[in-house]
Every structure is written in C-alpha cells, then in structure tokens.
Design a protein around this nucleic acid. Structure first.
Lengths: 220, 220
DNA sequence: GCAACATTCTATCACTCCATTGAATGTGGG
DNA sequence: CCCACATTCAATGGAGTGATAGAATGTTGC
C-alpha cells in the first residue's frame, strides 16, 4: 500500500539535491565532461572533502554515478535529461522570479558598454552555420573541449585568447560559447575580442544544452 | 559584478521550493485549478496554517501567485511550465533512482491481480480518440473538472462512481484519467469498474500534463 | 464599528543541512 | 608490505527548515 505521498517525498529528495548552488555548479561542470573529485573541487572552488560530500548527495539522488579509475573516482551525470531539467528550472526562475531577472540583467550588463552584446539564439546560430558566415569559438579549457564540442568549433581557452588569435578567421562573424548560459567565459572572451576589433557575439547557450537538444557533437 | 554563483544560488532557491513532498502535492493540486488556502489544505491534509506557510515559500520562489477574492486568497501557478518541470523531475527520478522505481512498481501493483492494468500512453489515447473507439472518463471532483478537462471527457468523481454508471457507454473501451501519474483516483476507478465488468484502462498522465503539452482543453 | 471568517504572522521546539576538521579506507608503485 | 595519494567517513558547531499553537491582520455583512 504505497501512498502517493511516499512518491512525492522521494521526488522531493531529488529536487532537494538540486537545491544548492554548489551542487548546481558541480552538475554544470559534469555536464561538460566526467571528472574526478579533485578536478570538480577545483572547478567549483570547494574543498575536496566538501565536494565529495555534495557529490554523494547527488549520487543518492540518482543524478550522478561514480566509478573508480585507478586512484581516482570519476563522476558523471547519469542522464542527459538533467541538463534539460536544470534548463527548465532556469526558464521558470527567470520568468517568474524578480530577483532572478535582476541578477541576469546584471550578469549581462556586467562590464558592457552598450546593448551590442545581444546573444545569439540557437536557431540563429544554426542558420548562420548553414550559411557558412559564422565561425564557432569554444573558449572552455582544452580538456572539456576534448570531451565533446560543437561541430567545426575552434578551441581557444580564454586564458590563451591573445596568444592564439591567428586561429580566428577575419572575414566571418565569430560566435563564442562556453559551458552554459551562466558561464562567464564566453562573456569575457567576447569583451576582449571586441576591444581588439573583432566582430563577435555570444551564443546564449552552451555545449551541454546543445548536446541535450540532440544536436550533433564532436569529440576529441 | 554579479558572480555566476549568485545566479546558481538563486536557482537553487527555486529548486529547494520543490524539495518537499507537501509542496509538490500543493503544486499538483494547483495544476488542476486555482484554489483557496483552505481548499488546498483540505486536498493535502495539511493544517491551514501549515499550508499557508508552504504556499508562501512557493510564492517567494515565484512558483505561485495569490490574489484576494473577498475573504479568500486564491492561489494559482505562475507558469504552465512548472508542470513540465515536475514531469521532467519525475522522469529523471524514475529512471535513475532505484527507490523511486520500487515505489512506482508498488504503486502500480497496488491491489492489482494481474498485468492487465497497463496504462494508456498519450499517443495511444490520441489515436483511440481519433478512431472514436474510446470514451474518456474524468474521475476528479466536479470543481476541478469544471476548471478544465480533456475534450469530450465525462466527469464522474470516484465517490459517485457506482451511482452514475449509466453515463458510461458500453460499446467502447473506457480510459480513465485524473490529476496526474501519481494520482490514485483513476487507479481506484479502474479497479472498481473492472470488477463491474467494464473494459477500462488508465491514462498514464493527467489533466495538467495534457494541458502543458499544448493539447486542447475544455472548461466549464 | 463589531462579529465572523480566512489567512498570515510570531514564537517555539525538534530536526535536518552545511562546512570544517581530522581520522579511516582503498589503490598503485616501489 | 609500506608509502603516497585520492577519496570517504565521522564528529562538531552553526544555520536553516518544518510543524504546531495562538495572536494578529484584513475582509465582509450587519
């Protein structure tokens, strides 16, 4: 005799696992590529012990799995749909929560001098790629790029941006992307490239959303 | 200078609002129809004071809104997508959490004598309706039915099932639905109707999911 | 303005969650 | 077999959450 309440309580456990900014950051990082505890702790500025504890909460909620590889534990998302789930959560929050709207506004205005940083939507990007007049720039670290990226993207991690400018075409508009809508890497890249005179905009999503939508990705 | 962490923390607040079985029950009830605090408390077996507090957490998270109507406060969902969000959460949980699978199994086996209670999928239902060989039965309370229901559905609340049998056609298969996948009403109806000899199955979703999918609904 | 009603607020207690620390476990290399 | 390393476990204190009861607020009808 299972009551409906048991099911909802269990569902609520999963929701609670998403109820921490640190865990959402871990999930966002895991959406790029599987990683060890130490790597994840580094990406999220958590102590190793703390990261481990959060990862185990995510594991108990069925959101990540872990398997050993030598001395390291490699964590990965259990399910592609977790990216969609967080995306939907984001949409609902942005639409209905004033505080969220405010923060998003700040995030996009951050260091911006005008309204020109308008992001490129998925459909715009697909159209531009089809026409062949945009170049895709992936500004994530090389390791994440290697684990998977958009077709035909060029990888220049932000730290090495100025040193690798010759990889960028000059006759096309550049579209930069990174980990997701709240990832600052592509913002930074866009700003620095604009100062150097490049015609460049930001893709409003990131690699995980692209992949979760079932669009083609390339690895290695 | 908004950090990404502020955005994720705010997002986490919304997720935390979903992190309680009672609040999920309130949301499920609100997905049927807007309702007063007292009504909601009754539907979820919470005290009025407690329900009010949970509703305000949902309000702070931007998931519900309230406006006064005379002496009562009428709460409603802010966004249709909240139903999809919970649906996706449910899918992820059912796929990846062993405990969830166990509970769902119990829920469906509950009082069942065989495997014959296989639920009808959305596409099967649409096909059956198009062919005209299924009759739709809505077993929710009349008030929720009035606020919105599937086209051509007949409303017989479970409490009045035996008294209103003459509304049911005898030459068609009956498909019963209620509030959602975890709502027990249609289960109960199917079991009782089967014992009476009817050919009847359960729709695997409910009214809110149908509506959230953008399919046509009728009200009043 | 007062009585009846619906809802919210306040205070309290028990409980859970979070970050930190240091100890314990498991693994590969010598 | 022991050491170095990566990770997990266990214990602590502090902050937040949930349910309850009772007071306070706001609304309608007289």
């Amino acid at each position: 005799m299972t009551s409906q309440q048991d099911l909802l309580d269990t569902l609520a456990q999963v929701a609670r696992a998403l109820g921490s900014g640190h865990r959402l950051a871990l999930l966002e990082r895991l959406a790029q590529a599987p990683a060890s505890v130490e790597t994840l702790a580094g990406s999220t500025r958590l102590s190793v012990g703390n990261a481990s504890q959060h990862l185990q909460q995510l594991r108990r909620a069925g959101l990540v799995t872990a398997n050993r590889s030598g001395k390291q534990m490699i964590y990965r998302l259990t399910d592609e749909r977790i990216v969609s789930l967080i995306g939907l959560l984001r949409q609902v929050a942005e639409t209905n929560l004033a505080e969220m709207e405010r923060l998003v506004g700040q995030f996009f205005a951050d260091g911006d001098s005008g309204g020109a940083l308008e992001a490129v939507s998925r459909s715009d990007l697909l159209a531009g790629l089809k026409r062949g007049d945009v170049a895709l720039l992936d500004v994530r670290p090389a390791e994440e790029f290697a684990a998977g990226h958009l077709p035909a993207a060029i990888n220049i991690p932000v730290e090495q941006l100025e040193q690798m400018l010759d990889l960028l075409p000059e006759d096309k508009e550049i579209v930069a992307y990174c980990r997701g809508p709240y990832c600052a890497l592509s913002h930074e890249a866009v700003q620095r490239l604009r100062q150097l005179g490049y015609r460049v905009r930001r893709f409003e999503e990131g690699y995980p959303e692209w992949k979760a939508a079932g669009l083609p990705v390339t690895s290695a």
